[in-house]
């Protein structure tokens, strides 16, 4: 960050306030500034933290019908949840999805960025093509891929990608996609990767562009081969970007919902079910609000475990001059 001047301003102000020793009623513009911020602060306090608190509370009650029942049941809902087969499958699916999604997006995104960074002709066109799925809604992606990965059947014929395989003479590649319980959520990874890998590419590309040319040249002067330059100079410099991408993709995948709804639903034997879908199902279809709240809390915890260390880390990095 190159905001050295504002940092100084901040230090001055902070010392001024601290030097006073006791709190003074802010006046004039300072008061106005706080008032300007107040609506947002109140909104965040209530609609994010207050609501999270309420959800946490609701998960400890017996609210399992349309009529709220706030009698306290302790951890009962969580005990039931973790012993529910569907939820166990959901957690497993989330892990599978997150790992595969990260691996696919990062590797494809990085490869694309490295290829595009070689000063090739038509870079703009290629970049646009890889990036545009990102402009779409997960619902649109889901609807399209539902038909693309619809396997068809032996009796009536193949459809979608399977049909394409047939046309290309690659019939042996045909599978049941999301209708095969052994594949399930992995088929959703394909659609999600299609949508999000361009994003990772853009991030890496921006990172690559930020690497000074001198560094590469210096390495080459030192006798490094093209591969060695990548391995020992470029890739290490891209680590922060990889971390950022993991955070962004990771929190998307932990709470993935829209794509599953539009593409597969829970799938055969819940093989493409995810906690967010289960939460929706159990809360807004099954009216079991306390159990839904419990699932929400678990999703929140998973996201927090991923995000909070990163936030603390980057905030500390920013605070350093």
């Amino acid at each position: 960050m190159h905001d050295t001047v504002p940092t100084q301003v901040r230090t001055v102000q902070i010392t001024r306030l601290a030097g006073n020793g006791r709190w003074k009623m802010p006046t004039g513009d300072r008061l106005i500034s706080l008032l300007l911020l107040a609506p947002s602060v109140v909104a965040i306090a209530v609609f994010i933290y207050g609501f999270i608190g309420f959800t946490g509370f609701a998960s400890l009650t017996r609210w399992d019908s349309l009529v709220p029942d706030f009698s306290f049941v302790g951890m009962h809902n969580y005990v039931v949840l973790f012993s529910t087969t569907r939820f166990q499958i959901d957690l497993r699916n989330t892990v599978t999805f997150t790992v595969l999604f990260l691996v696919c997006c990062l590797s494809i995104g990085l490869s694309l960025a490295l290829m595009l960074d070689r000063g090739i002709r038509g870079e703009g066109v290629f970049r646009s093509i890889f990036l545009f799925p990102l402009a779409l809604s997960f619902i649109v992606t889901g609807v399209v891929w539902r038909w693309l990965l619809n396997p068809g059947s032996v009796q009536l014929g193949s459809t979608g990608i399977n049909l394409l395989f047939d046309l290309l003479g690659l019939g042996f590649l045909k599978t049941g996609w999301y209708t095969d319980p052994r594949i399930g959520i992995k088929a959703v990874v394909i659609a999600a990767t299609w949508q999000m890998s361009g994003y990772v590419m853009a991030m890496y590309l921006a990172g690559l562009r930020g690497i000074p040319e001198e560094l590469r040249e210096a390495a080459i002067v030192d006798g490094a081969t093209g591969f060695q330059v990548y391995r020992h100079v470029i890739l290490p410099l891209l680590h922060p970007i990889t971390l950022g991408a993991i955070i962004i993709l990771g929190h998307i995948s932990l709470k993935i919902f829209d794509l599953v709804v539009a593409m597969t639903g829970p799938g055969p034997g819940f093989s493409s079910d995810v906690p967010a879908f289960f939460m929706f199902d159990t809360t807004f279809r099954g009216d079991n609000f306390s159990q839904g709240a419990g699932i929400a809390v678990i999703i929140l915890i998973m996201v927090a475990v991923l995000i909070v260390p990163y936030l603390l880390y980057s905030l500390r990095a920013e605070a350093q001059p």
């Binding site: 965040i44 609609f47 994010i48 933290y49 207050g50 609501f51 999270i52 309420f54 959800t55 609701a58 929190h251 932990l254 709470k255 919902f257 967010a276 939460m279 929706f280 809360t283 609000f289 839904g292 709240a293 699932i295 929400a296 809390v297 999703i299 929140l300 996201v303 927090a304 995000i307 909070v308 936030l311 905030l315």
Partner: peptide, 16 residues
């Protein structure tokens, strides 16, 4: 606190 609000899964605020 604001930043964390960006990442929360909205499931955790839907009911209230």
């Amino acid at each position: 606190l604001l930043l964390f609000g960006m990442f929360i899964p909205y499931q955790s605020i839907l009911i209230p």
